[in-house]
Nucleic acid binder design. Structure first.
Lengths: 346, 346
DNA sequence: GCTCATTATGCATGCGTATGCAAAGCCGGA
DNA sequence: TCCGGCTTTGCATACGCATGCATAATGAGC
């Protein structure tokens, strides 16, 4: 009689069935005791709660989700866990989801072959929603997700062609703000350092920056390719700029981490920031506020963006998930610190 | 006839049943086609694969795990996502798990009431294993997990009283190495900056450091409390040390991020590092290698530690999960950079 | 051509829970 | 006292898949 129906077979998992037997009631009652909206008397609810406590019973969410079709899991696909921009985003987003009773299934897309390799496994887990902070989304993916009615939200990415919601900082406006600030300081020679050349974020910031410069009568701006959003790439790009024939007076790096690498590079060449050269970035990661860097930057409205993402996912069970794709553009704030200064007369 | 058995009811999920009907075979066959070890002909396997592709079928892991009792999910409880130490750990661990076909369910313990609040939800998800990088583990938790046979591994924490496996850098040895290095440089006046006062990591590093100093004939070492592992806390602690009556010549911060805050603080007071004061940390986070800091530190054997954690979890389905609690102590490497230098004659 | 071993497939059931429906109990109003 | 409504509970079933067992099909050996 090894493990007939009763005998606590496989592992030490306690089931609703066992609690029910202990109390002489049906399994349904146990289930209802754990469902806030179910019809059950208060007395029974507490009796079940006590018995569950004694036996160490906890509802099995996996089994539950088979019926309810909701796992309570949201997948977050993140570019990399080295850039503080992404980790800050992850931190805030996870916190918000956790507060809403959702859990975070984490996928790193930098390793392991990008989104194409990840997407299938991710869907196998029947996640309630997907947040993508990076990597290339194809129309195929969009279609598959739409068919399954799994909400997808792009965070900090904007792919206009696709029918996918996106939450994004207003990069163009941020670029403009930067241009106005630097022009106001009297600078004449500018450079923009591109992150990933195909990233919409980098392109938009550049576009805003360059067009606002033009509006101020400055028609030329050196465009330097860094290749990726990293400290090292920013460092190298800055070295090239410093060694160039006509060194710029103000450099706008497409992201904070690159800007910080750039500052270190300029300083390593004996240049003073902001004395000899003004440096600005984008994101306002925690690092940017450190006194060594005191980086002037555009602050990502982190909390607001995370809140919108959660909204668009339809995380609050009641609300119907948003059907139509929506693109939210949230303006960032210009944060003035010590890395920018007035043009030095030469 | 709204959604009788056949009619693609609820959502666009394709089930094995539908694939089976399409091919005129049984649902079992579909199931077997997706199980590498099952008995099924090669021809059928490819036929099923093709049909699945056409219909967009993917096995539902949630349903599968109800039977197999394995979700393929590992929970990672992490202290905070701001300290680069934790994010680096998370990065490497997630990568390793992903490579082994496991997914990462992320929990941040700094918010939302610590481990006690997290543990129940975490177990409800029937995770295959738990990695805890922080927070206080109680014996209650250990007992519950043991009963469910859910493997738990502490990473970078050591709680000797409990029957839980742990993977940890050899902090005592690391502290000793640091002491030898700094004594070798001729320094006489030392300080140690404590992170979280109750963290075993901080205590052990301190112990190794102080005892080795003693062995070298140096019986006194200023112990400064920072309160937490953060840039700001390190910064403040350094300011206090700089303002003290007898300023130390060499300061060992319990973690890199604190050491970096400390360097910035010393420099803000006009002190040169390492000219006036040598600074060392622990962990070797990416930041530590930046030229601005060039921090001498003890390198955490990240990859090796992650590998051991995965081993101890018994992630490779075949191997029986390790029963007896094991504590792995992995030695770290002393990384010499520019933040330490010989004692300046005074 | 027959038997036996081997492989491939179908059938039935169960994993742990949620939920529609029916039945039972309870209370107040007449 | 009786009846209609409301609340609370049990029963049965379904969620999507894996798997033991039985059965059909195939091939080898004589």
């Amino acid at each position: 009689m090894k493990g007939t129906k009763a005998g606590r077979r496989g592992l030490g998992r306690v089931t609703a069935e066992e609690v029910a037997r202990r109390l002489g009631v049906s399994q349904s009652t146990i289930s209802r005791a754990f469902s806030p909206s179910a019809s059950i008397s208060d007395e029974m609810r507490t009796r079940v709660a006590n018995a569950a406590m004694e036996l160490g019973y906890q509802p099995n969410i996996i089994a539950r989700s088979l019926i309810t079709r909701r796992t309570g899991i949201v997948a977050i696909v993140i570019g990399n866990l080295v850039d503080p921009f992404y980790t800050t985003l992850l931190d805030i987003l996870t916190d918000r989801l956790q507060a809403g009773g959702k859990q975070t299934l984490l996928f790193s897309s930098s390793r392991a072959g990008g989104l194409d390799a990840i997407m299938p496994t991710l869907l196998q887990y029947q996640v309630d929603g997907i947040v993508i902070t990076s990597a290339a989304v194809t129309s195929d993916m969009a279609r598959i997700c739409a068919k399954r009615e799994t909400p997808v939200v792009l965070l900090n990415r904007n792919v206009p062609g696709l029918d996918i919601s996106a939450v994004c900082c207003d990069n163009v406006q941020g670029g403009r703000q930067m241009a106005r600030h630097l022009v106001g300081l009297g600078h004449k020679r500018f450079a923009f350092v591109v992150g990933q050349p195909d990233a919409s974020t980098s392109l938009e910031r550049q576009q805003g920056f360059v067009s606002e410069l033009a509006q101020a009568g400055i028609s030329s701006c050196v465009i330097e390719q860094a290749g990726e959003y990293s400290y090292e790439a920013g460092y190298e790009a800055a070295l090239r700029l410093a060694a160039g024939a006509s060194r710029p007076e103000a450099v706008f790096f497409a992201s904070d981490i690159m800007a910080i690498g750039g500052m270190d590079a300029f300083r390593s060449r004996g240049l003073s920031v902001p004395g000899d050269i003004s440096v600005v970035g984008f994101n306002d990661v925690p690092l940017a506020a450190w006194p060594t860097y005191a980086l002037t930057t555009v602050r990502h409205p982190w909390e607001q963006m995370a809140a919108r993402v959660v909204d668009l996912l339809g995380v609050d069970a009641a609300a119907a998930p948003v059907r139509k794709a929506v693109t939210e553009l949230i303006p960032g704030d210009l944060i003035l610190r010590g890395s920018t200064g007035p043009r030095r007369d030469q």
